[in-house]
Design a binder for these strands. Structure first.
Lengths: 219, 219
DNA sequence: CCCGAACTGTCAGCTTGCCGTCAGGTTGCC
DNA sequence: GGCAACCTGACGGCAAGCTGACAGTTCGGG
């Protein structure tokens, strides 16, 4: 996932960069309208975050030019004053979503994710829960950015927990998902997989709620 | 992929020619505006690289005449001074992309590729992953520049891995791609092809992730 | 039409490392 | 304290994958 962050305020730009990176985007940034237009027109991004208040070339103008040139990547527009007027302008210029300043980074990330998922068709390739991230495209797992080698079975278990990160997943369900419902295994097989994963990932990643099931901590 | 390079400075023209060739284009060139206009108007190119500072007939004029005549091939414009003014002029004249001098050849190639990809052309003719490169035009494979002879089946396998170089490709998918899904083969057939390829390419090219699939290392 | 060469699927035997099972421990709940 | 849920280290079976050999097929040349 490649993102372009267009923001002239260096402090916000830095935060943006950090947040988007943490969310799994490869981020490039500029605070210059001309640059932004140029980059967005020549490179392929999965997401653009665009501030409207820019020097030289206004964000709205940049956006309009992109759209006029047939560039269709999802664009999330930021604006200082969240007036209804500006919002209409943004949408008409071709923005896919809209976020008034000031905003919390969490909200921006949430919207960015939704946008990418909505437009890209395929779900975001990178899923995260706390320190854990798994790349559903290259089937890889990373802990605080450091890749961790995981077997196919372990990966499927993690992916399932990630998918249902909002609740503890009971062992029966996991067994049924990992193996067929017909292909019976002892419950202990699952516990063994969990144990091996915990050894690889360290504590604080996979939690247990006795009687309910397993879950990803800090999800 | 056929490219026309319009550039009057012989030194740059030579570099252009070399770089585009290396990128898999069949290159024709001229330094004369009238020639350029004639060629672009009568021949079919997948890409035109156009310098604006030309004798006799200015690049912008050439471009405008092409467009007025309904020629729609992608045009990458080069200019000595990357001023905003000139950019606008170039874009308005119908350029698809814009590159200010001085520039690095790598950037030009990258933009040329993006342009061709964007305008519906096929992917770049030369694809690379680490030491391995394959020429999709002549169906050739090279290792650190040294050509390696591979069979048609082996080439198709490599090409598929190259196309999906960002993820491990499971054996089932490869089997389905190499043969039809109806035309069933033993899984071992694939392993045999892999083994033969590895013998030709040496270690460190085709990797295996047990349970996930095969992939190009150093991709 | 025959011969040889190149290509490729199948087979058999091997290596590797995944993971299910077992046994014994620890934790939490009643 | 006792039971059930859960954890963990060790071990061995076995499936995934590797490789060399061989044969069937195709194709071009003579």
């Amino acid at each position: 996932m490649r993102a372009l962050a267009v923001e002239d305020d260096p402090r916000i730009a830095k935060d943006l960069h950090a947040a988007l990176s943490a969310a799994g985007f490869r981020v490039e940034g500029t605070g210059d309208g001309e640059d932004a237009w140029f980059l967005g027109d020549t490179e392929d991004y999965d997401l653009v975050v665009l501030d409207l208040g820019l020097p030289k070339l206004d964000g709205l103008a940049v956006l309009k030019r992109w759209r006029a040139n047939g560039r269709s990547m999802p664009v999330l527009v930021l604006t200082a004053r969240g007036t209804w007027q500006e919002r209409v302008e943004g949408i008409e210029a071709g923005a896919d979503d809209y976020l008034p300043k000031p905003f919390r980074m969490e909200e921006l990330i949430a919207r960015a994710r939704a946008l990418v998922r909505r437009t890209g068709g395929h779900a975001a390739a990178l899923q995260e829960a706390g320190d854990l991230s798994l790349d559903t495209n290259r089937m890889g797992v990373a802990l605080r950015g450091v890749p961790v080698q995981v077997t196919a079975l372990e990966y499927r278990l993690l992916a399932y927990l990630m998918l249902h990160r909002d609740r503890p997943v009971p062992p029966t369900e996991l067994l049924e998902h990992l193996y067929g419902e017909d292909d019976a295994r002892e419950a202990n097989a699952l516990e063994a997989v969990i144990a091996r994963l915990r050894r690889k990932l360290g504590p604080g990643i996979i939690g247990t709620r006795r009687g309910f099931g397993y879950f990803l901590e800090a999800a």
